[in-house]
């Protein structure tokens, strides 16, 4: 069993969101970087659990980014995984990123490709879906549960009105969210072991970006909360009706 886990570097959930260079770039000053929580808590941990069940399993982590992504991929290796691949490419274009990962995936002949359901910076939720088209593989999105039975996976996914379970033959791409696994904290042994695990750096393949960022901006500040007398809920209902026009 060979598993590829896609890892992305994202700003911490509490990071201050600001932009520089004429609002064309995210302001990275004083930002703490983390492994994208969906990639770490669900995709990576589930892969590690599968390896614990079947030690013959090989886990590769892949990230698309510059040298500054290396501390993040080392952190991921401290949780688990056998080796990491960094594709040296800085891009905000999902298609470019997916193409880079697809090249690695083709080379590695993986049985399973895990992604998080989305990154918490761009929220595009596109990589898994794009990989499915690029690799011509089945894709199950928003998984909440993942089991392997030999060459078949049983995956529970979220749908509009509840959940459904799908059976699929490997290889398959799965985007993971809450439910698939529980967050783990790396231990000292893992952190030490991560230092000597191989981290391969690959040159990016050539692709043409299909989108480009024009600029960013922040939502207009809320005009401030209007406090309502707790004894006067009729007034709140009136405001919701007449001012906010939402009920």
């Amino acid at each position: 069993m060979k598993i590829l886990v896609c890892i992305s570097k994202t700003p911490d959930t509490t990071a201050k969101i600001a932009f520089v260079e004429g609002n064309t770039k995210f302001d990275e000053t004083a930002v703490q970087w983390i492994i994208n929580p969906y990639d770490e808590w669900y995709a990576l941990v589930r892969a590690i659990e599968l390896k614990e069940k079947d030690p013959a399993t090989i886990i590769h982590l892949v990230t698309v980014g510059g040298v500054d992504a290396e501390p993040i991929i080392r952190k991921a290796l401290a949780l688990g995984g056998d080796e990491a691949i960094r594709i040296d490419c800085n891009s905000n274009d999902s298609f470019t990123v997916a193409n880079q990962i697809a090249a690695v995936a083709k080379e590695g002949a993986y049985d399973l490709i895990f992604t998080g359901k989305e990154t918490i910076d761009f929220n595009s939720a596109s990589i898994g879906s794009m990989l499915s088209a690029l690799l011509d593989l089945p894709f199950i999105s928003l998984a909440t549960h993942f089991e392997l039975n030999g060459n078949t996976a049983s995956v529970k996914r979220e749908i509009e009105s509840g959940e459904e379970t799908a059976e699929v033959n490997l290889p398959v791409i799965v985007s993971c969210q809450k439910g698939v696994a529980e967050q783990r904290i790396p231990n000292m042994r893992g952190i030490m072991a991560a230092r000597s695990k191989p981290l391969k750096v690959l040159t990016a393949i050539e692709t043409k970006a299909s989108t480009s960022i024009n600029h960013f901006d922040l939502p207009p500040a809320k005009s401030g909360v209007k406090l309502i007398d707790p004894e006067n809920m009729d007034e709140l209902v009136r405001l919701l009706k007449e001012e906010a026009k939402v009920i």
Binding site: P11, T13, I17, F19, I120, D121, F122, N123, T211, S212, I213, N214, H215, F216, D217, L218, P219
Partner: peptide, 10 residues
């Protein structure tokens, strides 16, 4: 983007 904390014009 950033979970609703900002907008990107693309």
């Amino acid at each position: 983007v950033f979970s609703g904390k900002a907008f990107a014009h693309i």
